[in-house]
Design a protein around this nucleic acid. Structure first.
Lengths: 102, 102
DNA sequence: GACTCATTTCGATATTTAGCTAATTATCTC
DNA sequence: GAGATAATTAGCTAAATATCGAAATGAGTC
């Protein structure tokens, strides 16, 4: 939980996730979209992996990153629900306190 | 946006927000729920204020913190929506790419 | 095997963060 | 005004993070 939010707290990493919405992409192609060094991007990928928001697949010389949308969804909506924030059917899901996801 | 996620990346701060769901509470009463020093808690409150997730109201000697649920809601659901993650009516709200909230 | 390309790891530095104690500020009470 | 109470600021340390260039690793190609 903490790691998901930490991962999302950086604009570069959020943009990486957005790029991956359109489909898997290699580390290099992703890096080309940003103005920072490859090692720096590699570190960002590591944070995203740590949070389980992406999956890395080795393909020859390259590494292809895939967005794990379901993990993002569960984290975001699960947390939102713990605050009674409206998701899905707006009935029978209020008052579900006592949740921090530590 | 970054600041909201950064604020949420700490379990203590998430728990503060949960406590505030039940209603406004003073800095001291909040601090009593945790095992860290008051100054440390004060720093956590500052992060939450910075992210605009809480509002501080001065009341005599005390400072009363209020949860700004609408800010949390907009951040969480807005970001989720930018990923096409289901919120509310599951129609007419897919494919809204191009969003990072930098 | 030597070469090249893609990516990550290493080592260094700078910044940020979480935590503490001690000191300060602000407000209320006597 | 002197005390007491609530909260924040100041000053510090230790640990984590972000960034870089250089070096190392892994996987194909000639």
């Amino acid at each position: 939980m903490s790691q998901v939010f930490r991962a999302l707290s950086d604009p570069t990493r959020r943009r990486v996730l957005q790029l991956l919405r359109q489909g898997p992409m290699s580390a290099g192609d992703l890096s080309d979209q940003f103005d920072v060094s490859k090692p720096t991007m590699s570190a960002h990928f590591a944070v995203l992996k740590e949070a389980d928001l992406v999956h890395a697949e080795k393909a020859g010389k390259s590494v292809i990153y895939h967005l794990k949308l379901s993990v993002l969804e569960e984290a975001l909506l699960g947390f939102a629900q713990s605050f009674g924030i409206g998701v899905g059917a707006p009935d029978q899901q209020r008052e579900k306190a006592g949740w921090t996801g530590n």
